[in-house]
Amino acid sequence: MIETAALGGIWRHEFALFKRYYLSQTFAALVEPTFMLLAFGYGFGSLVAVVGHYRYLDFVATGVVGVAALFTSVFPGMFNTYIRRSFQHTYDAILATPVDVPELVAGEVLWIAAKSGIYSCTPLVVAMGFGLRPSPGMLLVPFITFTTALGFGLFGMYTSAIVPSINSFDYVITGVVTPLFLIAGTFFPLASLPAWARTAAEFNPLFHCVELVRHAVFGLQPRTDLVHLSALLLFAALMWLIAVRTLRKRLID
């Protein structure tokens, strides 16, 4: 059972730390998409004006939302979890209080996902400066990125429990995270890829996130979007099971 009192304690810890780094994170969240949109939107955009029925800049802006959701969840999931478990022994301290492993995992990932869900919307805000038209559907985006970040945050936490050392994250980043963020229809449409890559993308949660974000911003397609949402929820549920299991093995002797 997961008690809110336990989650409250974990968030108290996160909030105390957040007060230390929110400025740098906010800076990164605003400036990074600005650079991306400048480089891709203007650089690439001069070669490709439209993708499908989207303006290329609008296409990239929504793609970058997905990339932000991935990066701001998988990296804290990997590195913070590893450092707190292995170097700082923070989790040892927390597990000596009335907090169980599932509560620890839930508290950490809900915080990561809440933060990621909100910060991942910054590319849209920046893109409005580049001419993206505001739409009411944009209000759905933080919920989409939150759900995506749950899965990827848990995936990061899971890998933190299986890597033998912090350097081994290179394998995860190059071998898993990079292909995930490239083959998701983020910067170029999947239609231009060979059939096998398009099939592979169906198994990429980020693809479902990016599709959902685009549809939320430019017009929902209820039937397909329900499939995309289910894929994200299924991914998060699966990751929850394996993250709790592997972390328990690592934290409890």
């Binding site: 108290r12 810890h13 730390l17 230390r20």
Partner: peptide, 20 residues
């Protein structure tokens, strides 16, 4: 296993809440 990034007081505040 104190949290080195937090102050002495913050460390205690976090645990006061963890201990409910």
């Amino acid at each position: 296993n104190l949290d080195e990034e937090l102050t002495a007081r913050e460390n205690l505040e976090v645990f006061a809440q963890l201990y409910r």
